[in-house]
Structures are given as C-alpha cells and as structure tokens.
Design a protein around this nucleic acid. Structure first.
Lengths: 235, 235
DNA sequence: TACTAAGTGGAACGGCCTTCCCGCTTACCG
DNA sequence: CGGTAAGCGGGAAGGCCGTTCCACTTAGTA
C-alpha cells in the first residue's frame, strides 16, 4: 500500500498521493501542451486537443485534472507568481509613480505574451485556490502602491484599484482582437491608459506608435475564429 | 410575376428575386430572432439556435442566408447607419472637440447596448458590403473630425483615427468580460480613454464612477461561458 | 377553382467534442 | 526477480453543430 505523505491537502486539485514516475512524466507533458495551447489559442481549447497535443489518451488527461479549471490552475501558477511579484517590485521602487507605471506596463505585457493568461487575469476561478491566492496578494500590494503613487501627486486622485481590472479586461480585448496580425497594438492602449491615470504634469514613458492601418485591418479580418475564452465551469 | 413589394433590395447577399409573402415574413422573423440572440449572446450563436428562436427550420435559415456573414450583414445594417450617422452629427457640432467627445461616448454606448454589434465594430467582414460601406464612410468623416478637433487644441496631436479602433476593441473586451454583472463598467473605460486623448486643459465630461468591487468580481466569475465572438468565416 | 413552382420542416449525415468504461501495460516494492 | 495495483490508451455512447436532401404544403396566378 503506497500510503505516503498526507492525503489531499494541497490546495486546488486532485488527490495528492504522489504519482508514479511515468504518471508524473505524463502530467508534465500535459502541462507543457496545455501551456502551449492556452498561450496561443486561449483558454477554451478543447480538452481533447490538449490530450492530442500531449500525446496522451483523453482519459489520462481527465484522470489527472478532472476539470478544466484544475488544469488552468496548475498551468498558470508560475505566471501568477510573476504577476504577484510585479507588484512587489513596484513597491520596492523608490519612486512610487515610476513603480506604478512600470507595473502597469509589465502586467499588460504579460497578457500580451500569453493569450490564456490574459483571460486568467480577467476571470475568477473560485476553485483554483493557487491562482486566487496570488491574485488577492497582488491586489493588496497594488492598493498600497496606489496610496504611495497618489502621494507623489502624479496619480489621479480618483483612480481606484478596480480600474486596473477594467484595464486588464480592455487590454485582453485588444489582444484577442489583434492577435499576431498587430502584435503591438496593446502597447498603444497601455500608453493611453497611463496618460488617463496620470495627473497633468506627471512624467511618462514615450507614447508607443499606433499600429499601422494595414495591420489593424488584417487583424479585423483575421479575427473571428476561435476566441472562446470559455472555461467550462466545474460541474 | 410577383410584384416588387419593397422587400428590401439590400445589396450584399442572396439572390434578389423578391420573395413570396410568407417567405418574406419568415425572413423577418429570422432577422428579429438573430437580432435578439446576437445582441445578448454575441455573434457566434449557433445557426441552429437562431432557427429555433425564429421558429423556422434550419433549412429555411440557410436557404435565406447561406453564410453567417450574410445574416450579420442584414441584421446590423440599421446599427451601422446609426454608427455612420454619429460621425456626421459630430461634424455638425459647432464645437469640434465636443463633437469628438460625444461621438466617442455614443459609439461606446452602442457597443454596450448590443454585444453582437460590439463585435461587428471590431471585425471586418469582407463579403458584407453594406456593413463595410458604412464603416468606411464613418472612418472618412472621423478623419475630418480629428483634424478639426486638433485645431481646437484639445485633442492630442499624436492621436490617429486607428486609435478609435483600438479603443473599440478595448471596449468590446470590457463589455464581453463584464456583461450584465457590471453593466456600466465600460463607461469608466470611455472616461479614461477621453482623458487619454485630451490635452491637459481640455473640457471633459465628468468621470464616471468605477464599478463596485463586488460587481466586478461577479463579472469575473460569471465570465467564462459562451463568448465565442466567432464568425464562422464564409467558406 | 385549379394548377404549379416557390417555399417549407424534418430526417439523415459527418464532424467535433466530452464522459465513461474496459482490457492491457508497466513501474515499483518486497 | 515476480506479483500487483496504478496507470494507460482507445473505443463506445451521447450531445450539439452545420449541411444537404426530399416529400409535403401553399401562395399566387390564370
């Protein structure tokens, strides 16, 4: 009877009875495949295609992660670490306003780099404990950052933490709509957003150039296919 | 020979041989059903569900509109008229900057009022002649509006027409993400965007309040289900 | 009124997805 | 080693979607 360490107390997903070596290897392959597909296609890719990409049976996938949300949780832990870390870094900056602007730019860039992650930042996954913990932590730190940034006089007084969530939703929209037809369009948005958040005299990074009309049009055409963003709520 | 009883000789789609009375009635029912479903669920609802909602057979639907794009074109003609009209109205305003701000607010509101239309404004449908004509017209007028608004000194010099497309994509993202859990979140975004576009002293409408944290969180949870935005490219 | 072609809905089909199940393989412990 | 249960893959069943075909209905005309 392999009855190793404590039973099921790791947050989030499945039983935690320590996998057999080959099983663990498969688990890893699934995570890699999912990371790849989520990144390029968005959350919402079929579980079947994840299994196919990982070269495992469909059964193996759902045995390891019985809901899509579990898979998402496992895939994006690292990214959420980076996300939470960004707020910490921002707080560490001696100039809170510079910390603020860089934080905004960093998290927008994180969204742009991974389409699935862009969605993760704008959705809540109640059962994904790990993700939600990181999100909460970042939110806390961000509140403090706001307080300090306002004290410099460069951040608008009416700015609130939830504005950043709205911004992330907006940015996700731009990223989903432009895809790789206009891969830098999001920079233009984040440039605008910083200008919206800043008070008149505040120092700002230079405004990124707009995407070319041609690229934007290509993006509008290309757009259309598979942007499900679906989560498949746990049953 | 059936007479040409104004059954809308809309360009673009199907044969235009004037439908029989009952067929025309069905066509209308399909359009109503599609308008309703596109508005609440987004483009991307299954053609089958449109047929069901319209109480016609699936065959009837695809006989009348052989591609989803045709249906979209027919459904959104009026909305696109309003859209193009908004730019005209803006040009008619003696104060170009006020015309500009109102135009921005109006088109964002149009997106918020109809989820399908929000998608239409950020996608191109090469085969949907009617829609594309209106879009082009609006774009032209908007260029002129920009020119005049810059002349007032209230619009940033580095603003370009394509910025409004990026903004529409962003707004569509917010609308898709918040749905009716936080139905006014988009106003906050448009408020930010106007502040981003304006030069320091420019007169602006008051900043809309942010959505409540509670509503935003509900939106993040609720989000996830079926926001396909898909178009089903014509084959 | 009677005829005919335009118009109809449902059945059938192929594709893709998910979930469940079952017989085979193999890692690991003794 | 060798036995055993953990782990595996794929097939079956069931659900939706979109398309196509076909026998029936009915609007409009003569």
């Amino acid at each position: 009877m392999p009855k190793p360490t404590g039973p099921a107390d790791t947050p989030g997903q499945q039983s935690e009875t320590a996998l057999r070596a080959d099983a663990e290897r498969n688990r890893e392959r699934i995570l890699e495949a999912a990371r790849r597909l989520f990144g390029t296609e968005g959350l919402g890719v079929s579980m079947a295609s994840v299994a196919r990409e990982a070269c495992v049976g469909k059964a193996t996938l759902s045995r390891r992660f019985d809901t899509r949300e579990d898979l998402i949780d496992a895939v994006f832990v690292d990214r959420m670490d980076d996300y939470a870390e960004s707020a910490v870094e921002a707080l560490a900056d001696p100039d809170p306003w510079r910390g603020f602007t860089r934080h905004i730019e960093r998290i927008c860039a994180m969204q742009a780099a991974d389409r699935g992650f862009a969605a993760v930042l704008t959705q809540a996954f109640p059962t994904a404990k790990v993700i939600e913990a990181r999100r909460a932590k970042s939110y806390q730190d961000f509140q403090e950052l706001i307080r300090r940034a306002k004290a410099t006089g460069h951040l608008r007084e009416d700015f609130v933490a939830d504005d950043v969530i709205v911004m992330l939703m907006a940015n996700a929209g731009v990223i989903a709509a432009t895809g790789d037809a206009a891969p830098d369009a999001w920079r233009r948005l984040s440039g605008h957003m910083l200008r919206a958040f800043a008070t008149p005299g505040a120092p700002l990074p230079p405004m990124p150039p707009p995407p070319t009309t041609r690229d934007l049009y290509r993006a509008m055409i290309r757009y259309g296919r598979p942007s499900p963003d679906t989560t498949g709520t746990a049953s």
